[in-house]
């Protein structure tokens, strides 16, 4: 069952790691431009769900459809091409390349797609301005604060104008004030480009920036919208 107009859907996802059932029939769907929070206890399968949706992990069973294409039918090369062109990623830690400056980090996805250095860095800088971190452009990630580093990571995730941004605990390492600033800028930027956002978080104040939430418990998902 694919809800009408949805960009990315998953049906009955199962994923087993040895004795652990990480996903046990999880469903998901998101529309273009929609921000969906994925919540639930630690170990319930949130990250596994995100990795499956993003084509990083292959589910053992179930189906994932992105824009009419079945991810489950695609080979690894096609999957990584899809990830590069359509998806952006923000994680909790350690995603920036420590040897590159912040602007080089943000420009990196464009460079990997073949853009010239100067063009890539110009576009990168406009994203850094939007996320209010253009002042750390020439610093290395290790010289920026955690909040700045996270905003650089958001800029890098959005620089290719992805249709879906996957964010796994993007504010997990930040204090409330910085976390909220990251969420404000992230959601503003996503809305302005009509990117859908899959936002994994255990913080309800962060989830309150979403349009809708699902809760994952014991590998099963529950759409909370239907309850209100």
């Amino acid at each position: 069952m694919t809800p009408a107009g949805s960009l990315l859907t998953a049906d009955g996802l199962r994923k087993v790691y040895g004795p652990t059932t990480a996903l046990d029939g999880a469903d998901f769907s998101i529309h273009p431009g929609e921000i969906v929070a994925v919540m639930g206890p630690s170990g319930s399968g949130k990250s596994t769900l995100l990795h499956c949706l993003a084509g990083i992990v292959r589910p053992d069973a179930g189906e994932i459809t992105y824009n009419g294409q079945r991810l489950t039918d695609m080979n690894d090369t096609a999957l990584s091409a899809l990830r590069r062109s359509e998806f952006g990623f923000v994680f909790q830690f350690g995603q920036l390349v420590p040897e590159l400056t912040c602007v080089e980090n943000v420009a990196l996805p464009l460079r990997l797609n073949g853009a010239k250095r100067k063009d890539a860095e110009r576009t990168a800088l406009t994203w850094m301005e939007r996320l209010e971190v253009d002042d750390v452009r020439d610093k290395r990630p290790g010289q920026a604060s955690g909040g700045q580093g996270q905003r650089v990571a958001v800029a890098r995730a959005l620089v290719t104008s992805p249709r879906v941004l996957f964010a796994d605990e993007p504010t997990g390492a930040l204090d409330s004030l910085n976390g909220e600033r990251v969420m404000e800028l992230l959601t503003d930027a996503a809305r302005s480009t009509n990117a859908a956002v899959v936002l994994v978080t255990h913080e309800t104040r962060v989830a309150a920036y979403s349009d809708r939430e699902i809760v994952v418990r014991d590998g099963k998902s529950r759409d909370m919208e239907r309850l209100v």
């Binding site: 309800t204 989830a207 309150a208 939430e213 529950r222 209100v228």
Partner: peptide, 23 residues
């Protein structure tokens, strides 16, 4: 569990409104 989830959804609904007002 349903009662708790229904309440949870209602709480988050109000939190969204407050977050929006805050912004």
């Amino acid at each position: 569990a349903d009662i708790l989830d229904t309440q949870r959804a209602e709480h988050l609904r109000l939190m969204r409104i407050l977050t929006d007002r805050k912004r």
